[in-house]
Amino acid sequence: MDTLETLRGLIADKFEVESAQIFPEASLDTLGLDSLAVFDLIFDIESVFDIKVANDEVKIVTVADVVSMIDRLRQEQGKA
């Protein structure tokens, strides 16, 4: 599973953001995701990537932060 591509699809569909805007350096804030939207996104990430995201993991700013968090948790939780 290509984490960035999957995440891009998730954000594009859920928040109606142009896929082209969802590049690694883009901040979630500039994509229009406020703190509640980030919680909502994490809920879907947990389902799609089959991981558990702890409360102290949610300090994510950019798309790249989300990708690296997902990849690390998949490794740690044996889902990679």
Partner: peptide, 8 residues
């Protein structure tokens, strides 16, 4: 409303 707005 947008999908994003509808989530709340």
């Amino acid at each position: 409303f947008t999908l994003s707005q509808l989530s709340t």
